[in-house]
């Protein structure tokens, strides 16, 4: 294997992602991390639920399992138990993972099952046309919140940490190098690794929220991302993050006993 190109199913192109979508960037970062890990196409499986993010495995040349909405982690648990020697990666989205699949998410973290979960958080239900999700920021316009979302959002990276995952990090589709590195670290660590990739959806999110272009959405992620250490310093000084800003970085890295880890044969 010399290039991420070898991991793509070129016969499935063109893909269904809209112009300016950030999902391709996240897939590329993932495959770059897979390459650096030296994983084998025949020994890697990509699993997903429903939504834009969940179309990703269909474009990758390994085995894949496209499952029902929110339940990718439950299916992945079965795959990992039956084939612990497989490297398992789950692609999911904010709606898939934290709304309809929230229950499976916290329990997969709690069991700390050995897999890497990459959540493309575009802050909206993109596939169905832009309804508000549990990650739609307060005040943001969606088709179900025509005058602005009012419900508080989930902090997915912290949720993973609190639920027991061995690794949790958040970056964005703007932070390509950091995101790739975080995914690779997640893959190296035994146990449940969660990487939240904030990603732009100009079609269903941006155009209703004065972020119509891809660049404006990327700039939004660049300008509103606050490094975790900086946020901690601010907190110590009694300063709060202004609304709309979010933290990025590594939230937890630990080595609790994990489920589904293949022990080295002596």
């Amino acid at each position: 294997m010399k290039s991420v190109e070898d991991w793509y199913r070129h016969d499935r192109m063109p893909h269904i992602f809209c112009t300016g979508c950030g999902n391709g960037t996240v897939i590329n970062c993932t495959l770059e991390a897979v390459m650096q890990m030296g994983w084998d196409i025949d020994n890697t499986i990509f699993i997903s639920g429903i939504g834009c993010s969940s179309r990703s495995p269909g474009y990758i040349t390994t085995d894949s399992l496209h499952t029902t909405h929110g339940r990718a982690l439950a299916f992945a648990t079965g795959v990992k138990l039956a084939k612990p020697e497989f490297d398992v990666v789950v692609f999911t989205g904010d709606g898939d993972l934290s709304a309809i699949g929230g229950n499976h998410f916290i329990h997969a973290c709690r069991r700390n099952i050995n897999m890497t979960v990459i959540c493309m958080n575009n802050m909206i239900y993109g596939m169905t046309g832009g309804q508000g999700s549990p990650c739609t920021p307060a005040g943001a316009i969606s088709t179900t919140t025509p005058y602005g979302a009012t419900e508080p959002v989930f902090d997915l990276a912290r949720l993973a940490e609190a639920s027991g995952a061995n690794y949790s990090a958040r970056w964005t589709a703007y932070h390509v190098k950091e995101l790739t590195k975080a995914i690779k670290v997640g893959m190296e660590i035994p146990g449940f690794s969660f990487i939240e990739a904030m990603t732009q959806c100009p079609t269903s999110y941006g155009r209703r929220n004065k972020l119509r272009t891809t660049t404006s959405m990327l700039e939004y992620m660049r300008d509103n991302a606050v490094l975790l250490n900086k946020a901690k310093r601010m907190e110590a000084e009694g300063r709060e993050l202004s609304p709309g800003r979010f933290t990025v970085g590594e939230f937890v890295k630990r080595f609790r006993p994990a489920l589904g880890v293949v022990k080295d044969e002596e």
Binding site: H69, I100, T128, Q131, T145, P146
Partner: peptide
């Protein structure tokens, strides 16, 4: 309700 194609336009319109 929860969004699912092809039901979404009903509940989006109701949201409005």
């Amino acid at each position: 309700a929860y969004p699912i194609t092809p039901q979404t336009h009903i509940v989006e319109r109701l949201a409005e």
